[in-house]
Simulated assay, not measured.
Amino acid sequence: MRDSIVNQAQRFLLKVLAAGPVPKHVAFVMDGNRRYARRQQKQVQEGHADGYLALRRMLEVCLRLNIQCVSAYAFSIENFKRSEDEVKALMKLAEKMLLEFCEHGDILDEYGVRLNVLGRTSLLPEEVQLAVRKAESMTRHNTRAILNLCMPYTSRDEITTAVESCIRNADPSNPQITEKDIDAQLMTSLGCSPPLDILVRTSGVKRLSDFLLWQCCEDTQIHISSTFWPDFGLLDFVPIILDFQRKAWGRQISL
């Protein structure tokens, strides 16, 4: 009974929030899985698994708010330097996550979400690459929203790749490259993502960790939450959305 009342209250709250201005693109630096695991006296792998559940939870919250695009920092290229056991566990979790997303009736299918895996995917184990291709292929027809899973990703690598593409595509007689050219070759742009409105980092750490550096350099609102990612939920997200709406209404009044 209590759970039913809580769920109804959450749905009502989301409807109220969705009636106001909502961001088109929200990104999450899902930080704090390992510290959460230690605090809960769990294995590190369990912390990452709980982090995956938090991603599904927050993705559904965003979709109910009619947010068009969600980007999640799932695995940095630098994370390959972690212990072999942790990397293997993360790769197994990634494969499981991708295959679950492919299932009929799962959250991507239910809400019409297209999945893009952004990053240097050639570094992933073959079985994870196969899962990436399957998940991307099976959701390619979805047009309501986008989920960008950034893995293995760093912003410096994305920008470098974009510049290399610009050089290859440049007119030899006029080899100038503009910011607009580079922006068009970013992985998010190639995946049809709208401009980034909000970037949220959990666990209280105040750095971007090489995530979407180009995309958040102008009008993006950056929020640092002290909550560890596996514990992050609607009540942590509501103040962030309200702050976005307050600023959006402020801009409208000033016009």
Rank of each mutant, 00 (worst) to 15 (best):
M58S: 14
P194W: 01
S254W: 10
K42V: 05
S189F: 01
P195Q: 06
R34W: 07
P172S: 11
T188W: 02
S155D: 06
F28R: 12
G47H: 12
T178C: 03
G204E: 05
P21L: 03
R11H: 12
V70L: 12
R246N: 12
C217S: 15
D236E: 13
F228T: 11
A18R: 15
E86G: 03
E179P: 00
F12C: 14
R251W: 08
F232D: 02
T160N: 09
C216H: 04
R56M: 11
I5V: 13
F75K: 11
G105P: 07
Q10A: 11
P21D: 10
G20N: 05
S165D: 04
L17V: 06
M30W: 02
S203A: 15
G47P: 13
C62K: 03
L212V: 00
F12S: 13
P230A: 00
G119L: 02
G32P: 12
L55D: 06
L130G: 09
F237G: 07
I240K: 00
S189M: 03
C62V: 05
T160W: 07
G112H: 07
Q43Y: 08
N79V: 04
P175R: 02
C69Y: 01
P175A: 02
L190T: 08
V163G: 00
G119R: 04
D236T: 09
E84L: 11
A54Q: 08
H141I: 12
